[in-house]
Design a protein around this nucleic acid. Structure first.
Lengths: 194, 194
DNA sequence: ATAGCAAAAATGAACGTTCATTCTTTTTTT
DNA sequence: AAAAAAAGAATGAACGTTCATTTTTGCTAT
């Protein structure tokens, strides 16, 4: 057990180092040797935990994506009223993107470059299902506009990625009031006008 | 003159090859030798036109960004009514992102990775001023919500990047009707409710 | 017009470095 | 003491960049 524990710690340290180095330098400008050094491990040890560099980054992606959606849906209950459920999910996602900034940036980089294998990308998408189900229900109840899920996501959720990125670049800071404004914009872009 | 022309052609070929290869492989997985080959040029020739690889990608970014904003503002006149001006710009941007998909994808990759120097990034942002001016005027006239430019951009423009990317990945296609829906979502997220 | 030439542009091969990965040995665990 | 885990050094390939040469260009004198 101490054995296994130690292994998991080492794996986590490797994943953590990957996120930090890839964020700052990009995937291909991040040598395995640096990842090893940051994780206090020999380069050769990485290959006990991961097949190769591609596998390391794929697994890191899936890990972070799972953490992201777990965080997003933590307090969510599929039986909630639509608007309440959406607000809860939206605000958890906002929390994640603005507080777990490193992780959110890593995902943004993965989602906008060819660095992740298609298979792992698909794997990562699955976790979003509860939100899509909520929208489905919302459309049936006439509370959510009858738009494609992609358009709903583009307007309701994706803007947070952009705001996270500009905040990270230091161009501006998103305070509590901004966040409420942003939520209102998100909701008003997908709710049906009554 | 024939001389200079030839040089410009070669530079353009190099920029074009850079865009295509970086889109498919990412910056650091794109060797200078491949860029040279695609542009029908010797690797050494690249260094007659660009200082080094970083300079090549920086200049490519600025080129594409300028093309993007020129396209966006081509028919725009700063004296137009707010809504008309916004619709015109929005639809031109949509056109660009969906038709000049390769170029839009390249920008997305640059904007979500550390591959571009901060200086070139700043250079690229300047070109967006006419849209910010329009929003400024819109806020004064009470037509546009009094939100930070970043939030306005996040909801009005940035969703198009996401839709472009999902379309490129083949997950779904944005037809004429979708586009009109998307425009309505964009406008309704930034206009003041009357 | 054109032959000849200096400068500019372009080239392919070569250099030195860096990287992902593997191999052999050592350390730790059971 | 056997097995598993970890280490550091070694390997071979690939890369960005430069170098020595060749080719092309634009001009001048005829």
């Amino acid at each position: 057990m101490a054995k296994l524990q130690k292994s998991i710690d080492k794996r986590n340290a490797l994943v953590k180092a990957t996120i930090e180095l890839v964020n700052n330098n990009g995937f291909h400008a991040t040598p395995m040797s640096k990842i090893a050094k940051m994780a206090n491990v020999s380069p050769a040890t990485i290959y006990l935990y991961f097949e190769n560099k591609q596998d390391l980054v794929n697994q890191t992606y899936i890990d972070v994506k799972a953490e992201y959606t777990n965080y997003a849906f933590a307090d969510f209950d599929p039986n909630m009223p639509i608007e309440e459920g959406f607000e809860m999910i939206w605000k958890r996602i906002a929390d994640f993107k603005l507080n777990e900034c490193e992780h959110a940036m890593f995902l943004a980089q993965c989602d906008n470059t060819p660095m992740i294998d298609e298979e792992s990308r698909q794997e990562g998408i699955k976790h979003l299902q509860p939100l899509l189900d909520l929208w489905e229900r919302g459309k049936k109840e006439g509370v959510i506009k009858p738009l494609s899920d992609y358009i709903l996501y583009a307007y309701a959720i994706n803007p947070l990625s952009f705001l996270m990125m500009t905040q990270k670049r230091g161009s501006f800071t998103l305070d509590k009031a901004h966040l409420e404004e942003a939520y209102q914009s998100a909701w008003s872009s997908i709710k049906t006008c009554l």
